[in-house]
Amino acid sequence: MNPAVTLDRTSGRRVAAEPIASLTLRLTVNGEERVLQVEPWTTLLDLLRDKLDLTGTKKGCDHGQCGACTVLIDGRRINACLKLAVTLEGQEVTTIEGLGQPGNLHPLQAAFIEHDAFQCGYCTPGQICSAQGLINEGHARNRADVREQMSGNICRCGAYTNIADAVLEVLEQGKQP
């Protein structure tokens, strides 16, 4: 342990912490390789929002209980709020900004607009990234599957039926050659 740190044994707290050198992190974000200096206690979510200005990934609870921060790591959906950024050395992160842009929308983004699958829009990037993860996983075949496998994304505006419509449409189109 760092000898410069004073530890309060009763509270288990560092009472006067010396700065700990930040670590070098190599991360691919939306196809772009980045070399970043991060502190070990920075989450991927805070890194994206505060340091990289990729605010499309949302903070809805910061505890893995809402899914608003869903991003894809090497194609798999996870909650960015519960990932310490340093643990992702060498991995590939895709956020909503990496899926599509206005004028060049990803099919899920277009389907969400068409089906009005959102209202306030705050859970939407997470819903879309989650839906992409669902498609990548390949375990959803019908509406009931979509509903269950999208259940890690809360929508307080209650757009669920429209989200299911949008996701199902893209899922089914993907099945066709």
């Binding site: 499309g56 599509g100 009005d116 959102f118 829009g121």
Partner: peptide, 20 residues
């Protein structure tokens, strides 16, 4: 369709904590 839809589905729409 919502005229603000494209902004919302691409993460471009900025909410209160997102003005850096």
């Amino acid at each position: 369709s919502r005229v603000d839809g494209a902004e919302k589905v691409t993460g471009k729409a900025k909410y209160a904590a997102e003005y850096n």
